[in-house]
Design a protein around this nucleic acid. Structure first.
Lengths: 220, 220
DNA sequence: GACGATACGGAACCGTGTTCCGATTAGCAA
DNA sequence: TTGCTAATCGGAACACGGTTCCGTATCGTC
């Protein structure tokens, strides 16, 4: 299974998550993609690496200027490749989000019960969030610029969570009044500020939430 | 019992929560307070009312300039009375925080079990947070300016929560590995973004958390 | 009414994200 | 190799938010 908590590992050959691929696919059928210039491709890769390093060093709140400086480019270059901060963040973490999404079905197939698969998957999700300083905060930020990041996470992970939840529901292991979106948002919220207070253990809170999710006829 | 979700009801005679009373008490023993000028007192009251109205209208994120305009004063006046945004927020909600703190012992005395008292108290807390747009977010913000707000809430409410939790623990009704601070932060986190998505019901998530908190020997 | 202390207003400052546009350069053709 | 042109780059400039500063206005007292 993919390791969700490892470094962000940018720098692959294929689609590095340029903003154009985040929204609706642009003008399908207008012929093959016009292939970017070499310096543009180089810069995009450099930017993703610099951003990943900056996020590790200073959290996802690191100023755009710092990322630009780290990459040795101007801020204009960042905004040409990524229309907004959130798109850059999304691009940097795209691989890990995809890995998390892919892990859902695998866990469902390998775990000894749907509920176990669900908890393991949520564990992956939590590991991902708590190891990325400020990511959970950014996801819930009401800043309009982060709407696209929020949407990307939800688009990709809600269906996976919904499948796990549905399986657990069919097995009679969980309450039936909780939706996947709600569960994911709750878990995401619990991860906020995870690294900033040693007294607060997000994983323990998520455990509580998941325990409470279990189907228990004897509700007090 | 105090109604935590009602309007903020500023405008009382006594201490309206000026910043001086939030931090450590300044120079105790240097004689009686020198009694502010009349216009200063008038402005402080006006400011609290304007801020409360602005918070209701636009959330606690409303720009300081907007509050100043609403109160018909300059921004300098705000900063003279409240050293920072967070102090203004704290002052506006001080009454409700105090009411929430006071409700703890009352509930413990009146409810039929400590766990019930705890859940009722948490309900009050949640009602408070979800009815104040952006307050839960501000509480967890890593912005240094909100540290004082965070600290105020915690100073005031953690002891109350700890008492309720201890009582429930003595009654064998809850797990023993959760601290009051952790529980409060978890609940606070779950309230983030409560009003912005009709799909997400913070109260339901808190219910899950509290259910998971219950002592259950048969852990799956 | 005068005068010192206090409080006021809002321009100015700093740090953000984002936009804009002249300078630069890659990629191609001759 | 040399031009040419469109794509790309860099960073100054803008918008917007919190906060600070200081000349001016007002209060309260003599």
């Amino acid at each position: 299974m993919a390791d969700m908590s490892s470094g962000s590992a940018p720098g692959e050959q294929a689609d590095l998550g340029s903003a154009a691929t985040l929204g609706k696919r642009a003008d399908v059928g207008s012929g093959p993609a016009p292939r970017k210039r070499a310096d543009a491709r180089r810069n995009e890769k450099t930017l993703l690496e610099a951003a990943a390093a900056a996020f590790v060093a200073s959290g996802v709140d690191v100023p755009v200027r710092d990322i630009a400086a780290r990459a040795g480019v101007g801020v204009g270059t960042i905004y040409r490749h990524f229309p907004t901060r959130a798109d850059l963040v999304a691009a940097v973490y795209r691989h890990q989000v995809e890995a998390c999404a892919a892990a859902g079905p695998e866990l469902l197939a390998s775990a000894d019960s749907p509920y176990t698969a669900l908890t393991r998957w949520i564990d992956l999700f939590v590991d991902f969030l708590v190891t990325k300083h400020g990511l959970a905060e950014a996801l819930q930020s009401d800043d309009a610029a982060f709407q696209t990041l929020h949407a990307y996470f939800l688009d990709r992970l809600v269906p996976v969570c919904a499948d796990l939840l549905a399986a657990a529901t069919r097995a009679g292991q969980v309450r039936t009044d909780i939706e996947a979106l709600e569960l994911l948002r709750g878990v995401g919220n619990l991860c906020i500020g995870a690294g900033k207070d040693s007294q607060y253990d997000a994983r323990r809170m998520v455990t509580l939430l998941l325990t409470g999710l279990q189907h228990r006829p004897s509700t007090p």
